[in-house]
Design a protein around this nucleic acid. Structure first.
Lengths: 209, 209
DNA sequence: TAGATTGTTAATCGATTAACAATC
DNA sequence: TAGATTGTTAATCGATTAACAATC
């Protein structure tokens, strides 16, 4: 942690939302905004927005508000988006392809360098412009190439083993799309996209209306 | 809402996790468990688990614990997974295909009935065993076929318009994969999968370690 | 200066944890 | 009956909101 003390998880989760809104406003040609205006766009209270932004330092100016471009730059920095990240995708199915494609298209800071699979039909081919390598070389590849993030799109039953090997290889983070929870990842940040949990939360709200 | 009063969002979000753990334990041949054992597997405190489960009625037995199959059945019911849901996927790109494929393979309660796209190369074809229909018929199709959930995998700039038409058609829920927030969805439950936000939270944790 | 809007403290609200009586 | 473990209340902790002094 830089200077700042422990930031609540809830705050971190809101930062990307601020960033998206600021990008939107910048695209509209706006130069300054206020917590009240952001509140209207996003739906959080103005008080919460000021509180959130203040965790990281004083980005606003009393009587004026916030300079959109400056604030955007700050949040970008806080989120670590000034850095570049090397990614590999493990699991070259439809989901793996979709994620690789999405990331290549929309997330320029994230550089996907290879895909991995166990199927000999796929190994050696090129998907989304990326070489598909043999799953068994994950750990070695991560070590040699300084991969930062491993993206797991393989079936749930392989996720734990893949994660263990990614960790031994030295990744800093795992983006996990497998419907399972990974254990023993001390020192590695794990971010889960549990499609199944999301869909089930949706049906809860539909069914209990 | 059935009998129960307002359940906190945080509780709902944990239910799918309980369900997954119970399924896992059932598959291992276990018949009963306790809040302490669940706590060890999941990582929530035993106290929280008892508190959570009690929101919905007394599923446990003092001195005994919880019957795994019964508890699983209850959570299934609470989450609305006893019902069937009709889905359509809008956006027949890689992500759309991946989601359609995932849902068809792993989520039997969810019946995907069609895909939609604007591209004339795709309209009329069959993807994942589903007909690809013309985007302009979404509203009509939803009305005629009683579609419950619309899955948006189209680019962000089209998401709001698609959501509006889904709403007019009468869907109960929207599963949104577009990197944007949808407005004016009163009466429609929206569940977002914001890949971009997830990735950015991950880099925050990596960068601010 | 007057008006606007932040930064920040205090109050409120909600969620988690601890404790233990109830009871199987 | 004794042991185990829930259900449930009370205590704690954390996050959100309200209020307002600071200041641009």
């Amino acid at each position: 942690m830089s200077k700042e003390t422990k930031i609540a998880n809830a705050v971190i989760r809101r930062l990307p939302r601020y960033l998206r809104t600021l990008e939107e406003m910048e695209a509209e040609g706006l130069e300054r905004t206020s917590s009240a205006e952001l509140s209207e766009r996003i739906g959080f209270t103005a008080s919460q927005i000021r509180q959130d932004l203040n965790h990281f330092g004083c980005f606003g100016q009393q009587g004026y508000g916030y300079a959109i471009t400056d604030l955007k730059t700050e949040i970008n920095r806080i989120l670590g988006l000034k850095n570049k990240y090397k990614l590999i995708v493990i699991g070259c199915g439809r989901l793996g392809e979709a994620i690789a494609n999405y990331t290549k298209t929309f997330e320029p800071q994230f550089d996907i360098v290879a895909m991995f699979d166990t199927s000999h039909d796929k190994i050696g081919s090129v998907v989304c412009g990326l070489p598909v390598l043999d799953d068994k070389w994950i750990e070695e590849y991560v070590k040699k190439n300084g991969v930062d993030i491993g993206v797991i799109t393989a079936p749930a039953e392989f996720a734990q083993d893949i994660a263990d090997r990614l960790k031994r290889g030295g990744v800093k983070g795992i983006w996990n799309f497998a419907v399972t929870d990974i254990k023993g990842m001390e020192g590695v940040k794990v971010e889960n996209i549990h499609l199944s949990d999301s869909l089930r939360a949706l049906t809860y709200y539909i069914a209990n209306d």
